[in-house]
Design a protein around this nucleic acid. Sequence first.
DNA 1: CATGAATGAGGTTTCATTCAT
DNA 2: TATGAATGAAACCTCATTCAT
Lengths: 214, 214, 214, 214
Amino acid sequence: MSSTVAPRPPARRRRLAAEERMRQIIEAALIEFSEKGFTATRMDDIAARAGLSKGGLYAHFKSKDQIFETLLFKVLSPSFNNRKWMLDDGDTLAEVVDAFIAHTYDRVTDPDFIAALRLLITESHRAPHLVDYWRREVLDTYLKEQQTMLEHCRARGLVRHSPLTQQAELLMAPALYAAITRMIFGEEATQASLKDLRRAHAQLLMELLEPVEA
Amino acid sequence: MSSTVAPRPPARRRRLAAEERMRQIIEAALIEFSEKGFTATRMDDIAARAGLSKGGLYAHFKSKDQIFETLLFKVLSPSFNNRKWMLDDGDTLAEVVDAFIAHTYDRVTDPDFIAALRLLITESHRAPHLVDYWRREVLDTYLKEQQTMLEHCRARGLVRHSPLTQQAELLMAPALYAAITRMIFGEEATQASLKDLRRAHAQLLMELLEPVEA
Amino acid sequence: MSSTVAPRPPARRRRLAAEERMRQIIEAALIEFSEKGFTATRMDDIAARAGLSKGGLYAHFKSKDQIFETLLFKVLSPSFNNRKWMLDDGDTLAEVVDAFIAHTYDRVTDPDFIAALRLLITESHRAPHLVDYWRREVLDTYLKEQQTMLEHCRARGLVRHSPLTQQAELLMAPALYAAITRMIFGEEATQASLKDLRRAHAQLLMELLEPVEA
Amino acid sequence: MSSTVAPRPPARRRRLAAEERMRQIIEAALIEFSEKGFTATRMDDIAARAGLSKGGLYAHFKSKDQIFETLLFKVLSPSFNNRKWMLDDGDTLAEVVDAFIAHTYDRVTDPDFIAALRLLITESHRAPHLVDYWRREVLDTYLKEQQTMLEHCRARGLVRHSPLTQQAELLMAPALYAAITRMIFGEEATQASLKDLRRAHAQLLMELLEPVEA
DNA sequence: CATGAATGAGGTTTCATTCAT
DNA sequence: TATGAATGAAACCTCATTCAT
């Protein structure tokens, strides 16, 4: 891309606390790995984005693999996925659905989330143990919580019984569709269709959850 | 030099053999690229799976990139996506939905389809022109056809108006969810949940499309 | 040493049978490893001496370690040490001693032998299993054979009983002394003292083995 | 800044500490260099063994090479080789031989001596001037002293004329054999054979030096 | 056409040395 | 002085590509 030789700014040596540097490295790695994949990402890429030299990475991580594992561990920890997808309580169905849609599509347009999801799809095979753990302890837990919340809303007469209340995955499937589309076609190319899908998604939830009138 | 010129071998045969070899190479490349990504796949890997030596590949393709482009071109051509996702006509809603679900989940469990989708997510940025073309000429066309078909069914009183009839993506979003799950967790680990999701997906379609009784 | 840039002869690519190349590589490695030690030897050094490029080495050996192990295995196999140290039969004690001394000091001045011994001293810890095997199966066997031969000569009245006939190591200890001296001080610096030592060594054997007159 | 100037710590003490540190570093370097060779030894290894950090080494030595030279200089100085190999005077031949054997094999089992000898074999080429000096001023001097001592004993009728009295190297060659064996096979594996060799060595000296009865 | 040895560019990793703290 | 993060120059190794056979 940029074939001009960099003018080489002498780049004064900056010494940071190890913890801070590690944070920067992991953040850089998330972007690079997600954009290009594990193998196509060079240590130089990560180093440049983290603002130190290639060799400097090795003061904090033993290997490229270890950077990856550390990164994936962070990305898969419950705290990373900060509960914003959650269906929440509310006074009316419209409120509940609107809040859910808002949270969900915030997430879908969050670069860090897209990056993490892409990482999971493309490179999760490199750390099967982490992925197994994540599925059992994070994803399944989240789905069960959703289900419980739906039951709760149904008990209050806020929603009706529907396939969604059986399989919480259906709640967010359209948003995943949007995320994948974004991954493949890019942000700009999917701006418009995202809005349409989001609106239709909301309508779908309303239609499926609206209690039948007596 | 001093010997007689070797008789030209029958051209027809050789040409066929070459074409067959190329098919094998592309098939091998699809699997390897999809499993490991473009950069992590070695020419040796493709060669081994295609049953010839590394050097032999270069008799058929000029470079790794050319293999990739040829492969992506095939994968993105309408013929690869052999129309099985299509919502089809039928006599009752149940028939229509059942056929759609059957076709769709056949696809989701087809290794070649999973491989192609993964390739698209992971490596599509390597050939933006192909992806652009595919979106416009194949994907959007397909979605429009779906929409038309839904209109047709509605006109016949087979389905009712619903968010689905506005955004055909919603029709298959749960199946995409299943496909992504398979990609991340593998075939074995998602066998059971796939069946549940499939059933719930069918119910969802029924509930959303069933005409309201007068 | 030679700070001038090599004029880079285009070095036509020569394709050899794998076996022949491996022989050349091992021969080159023996010299380089022995001269500089394992770690200080670069793959480039071995490659240059073997007449191919660094990358080419990896067509024949998986790693530097594998080159080393293969080399040590060859060096420690009985065939490498071609039995020239052996005390042999003869008609008179002088003949026996002269033959032994000749064989032994031929060995001590053989660059390949010096290289192997140096390798053994400096780098044997890298392959303890090979060294263990060698001690048990090669060295101890050789010492036992020597002892047997001494017994045989004694039975024939050719030599008398002496500490040497109990510990065959004493037979060649002075030659090892010479070898070590050569290693430390180099060939040129030890030329003269080698001759003196050799003569004294022969006299020592005569004096210790000469049967006492009745 | 606003506080009182720190009182200068007693200069004497600090200087001593530095000297002690250097001693520790050199001792650590002897072990590490001897075990792994110069190139394979990392500054970290030396630092760890000397009980400070890598950077700390540079407060005392300018470079790895300087550590090495300083070390070799110490190891090759006459004081290091504290005269224990010397053949000494005595009242009877048995006494002389026993003392010599005791001193010599003490040396052979001294880890520092083994380390130094190994260093000499492996890495002496890095400081040819030191080695040259050592050969001329230390080793040859020592051999000459031995020779003189043998002459002295012979004059007293304690020993007879023999090849040993011509080439003092023969006196200790078997001990060198033992040392080399120890280097290659390790301490444990050579415990038993060392005792045998030592006994035979003593007998050999007796047999070669015992004056002939009139 | 096919093979696989060979090349050379480029990637990961190591490590002596420097320097901010 | 001491520490250890940071640098940069290699070193090992990989792999797309070429080419002799």
